[in-house]
C-alpha cells in the first residue's frame, strides 16, 4: 500500500481499528493508529485498544481505503456518492504531475 510519501518524514500510514468486544456483537470503531503494514497494525491494535482484555476480534483497515457516505455530516465539498472518512491530505491520490499539493 503506497501513499507516495517520504516514509522517514511522513511517518507510518494511518489505520482505523474496529473491535468486536464480545461474541455476538458487531465490530465497533474504536480509533486509529499508525503502523507500517497490516501485521504490525493488528498487533499494535491489540496492545493499544484491547489492553484490558476487551476484544474477541480486531479489524484494521487503512484509513485511505475506507469509503464514506455520511449525508448527515454536511460539508459543502462532500461528494454524496463516496468520499473519505476525514479531510486528510494524505488520503487523496495526488494526480500525476501535481507537485505542490
Amino acid at each position: 500500500m503506497t501513499e507516495g510519501h517520504d516514509s522517514g518524514k511522513r511517518g507510518w500510514p494511518l489505520w482505523e481499528v474496529f473491535v468486536r468486544p464480545r461474541r455476538g456483537l458487531a465490530h465497533q470503531h474504536v480509533g486509529s493508529l499508525h503502523a507500517p503494514d497490516a501485521a504490525m497494525a493488528l498487533r499494535n491494535a491489540r496492545d493499544v485498544y484491547t489492553r484490558r482484555g476487551e476484544g474477541v476480534s480486531i479489524w484494521v483497515v487503512p484509513s485511505s481505503a475506507i469509503m464514506a457516505n455520511s449525508p448527515d455530516e454536511k460539508d459543502p465539498f462532500f461528494d454524496p456518492a463516496q468520499d473519505k472518512v476525514y479531510r486528510h491530505p494524505t488520503f487523496y491520490d495526488v494526480p500525476e504531475g501535481a507537485k505542490q499539493l
Partner: peptide, 11 residues
C-alpha cells in the same frame, strides 16, 4: 522508537 512500541515493550 514509536509510541506504539512503548506500549508493546511495557506489555
Amino acid at each position: 522508537p514509536q509510541i506504539e512500541e512503548d506500549l508493546a515493550l511495557a506489555n
